[in-house]
Design a protein around this nucleic acid. Structure first.
Lengths: 189, 189
DNA sequence: CCAACCATGTAAGCGGTTACATGATTGG
DNA sequence: CCAATCATGTAACCGCTTACATGGTTGG
């Protein structure tokens, strides 16, 4: 994935320190992208060496090592080039599907509780997205920036809605098995 | 994610060689999980050392090095343990959303073509899933295994349907911008 | 003064990708 | 016989995660 480009995009919105970037990635951006501070500092170093960004000691640094990073024109060129580069959408890659298959092959292992737990997480994420929607986007006239931010948020909303719905189906299937088993036992009488 | 467990699950369905596993992963399983042959051979070696699987020269080996792998009871225990281990669902992690954000920040970069290209890919995947659905699941009485396989497939179908729909929305938003720009110019008169 | 937070790093290890390499078997 | 496919590996590299480490600042 291209972490450097994600970082530059964030820096373009507002120049800041590595620490600030790490915090931003935990919040808004972090819903669809995660980055640890170790990664971020490393990439900042590389990008500065490449001439994509530059840094200077922060005005409010005092005796701390705080540095503020800023995107250079070369970085902006690189961003444009990268943005238009075609990349195929990733495939799911959720190991829970493998676990379901394991359950299918090895007989019932009792995955219902885990499905319910995950459904809860999806509902939480969905609620968080809906809150952002209500606060920032719903029923407002949006700028170009806002329109696109909302578009990205809607991708997350659709995703989580789908997964909540699917989790319910999954519980249904695993429950049906028991009913079915009982039914078959009944038929044997 | 746990490749060894995915491999063992596949081996439980049918014992086979590393090469066969690689091919299977490119087909059915590969729709939501990828693994290169290098990875597979390395993991097979590790799992054999751990006592989870064992191997013997294939009956049809001739002078080739072909080996057939089989899951041992210790491997089955490990599979059960792992299947019930809770793991949070992964977050999206599609770099295209970052690109959209870059477009939002740096002004229109012309991502429409890429969105259309990706929408085409999602439609292709969806068609492939629908074909499997029609061939193996639609309107049939399914075994427990079949029910779960179909459930997994439906997750893929929902995902791709959502992304096709979202791509259309995205094209709408990017097109609207132009209309809006023209409209605003008109208002200035 | 001490805890919480700000701010930046190093090091080890793992999983995954790419490139390279080798030899056997099968079908045209 | 030659190409394609079967079958198994090694080596280098990269990104990401986890754990560890250090020092400054702020608020109770």
């Amino acid at each position: 994935m291209s972490l450097p480009h994600a970082l530059m995009t964030s820096l373009l919105e507002k120049s800041c320190s590595g620490y600030d970037l790490a915090r931003r990635f935990e919040k808004s951006i972090g819903y669809f992208w995660r980055a640890s501070h170790q990664q971020i500092y490393r990439e900042l170093g590389r990008m500065e060496e490449a001439g994509w960004i530059r840094s200077e000691a922060a005005e409010d640094a005092g005796k701390s090592r705080k540095r503020v990073y800023e995107v250079l024109p070369a970085g902006q060129e690189e961003l444009k080039r990268w943005a238009l580069e075609p990349v195929d959408p990733p495939s799911p890659r959720d190991e829970f599907f493998v676990k379901l298959r394991t359950d299918a092959v090895m007989g019932p292992l009792g995955l219902e509780a885990e499905i319910e737990r995950r459904m809860g997480l999806h509902k939480l994420r969905l609620a968080a997205y809906r809150a952002i929607e209500a606060r920032d986007f719903a029923g407002k006239t949006l700028s170009r920036l806002g329109e696109i931010q909302y578009l990205i948020l809607r991708a997350g909303i659709m995703q989580e809605e789908g997964l909540v719905k699917w989790s319910e189906e999954a519980l249904g299937v695993l429950a049906d098995e028991k009913t079915l088993k009982n039914k078959n036992l009944g038929d044997l009488k």
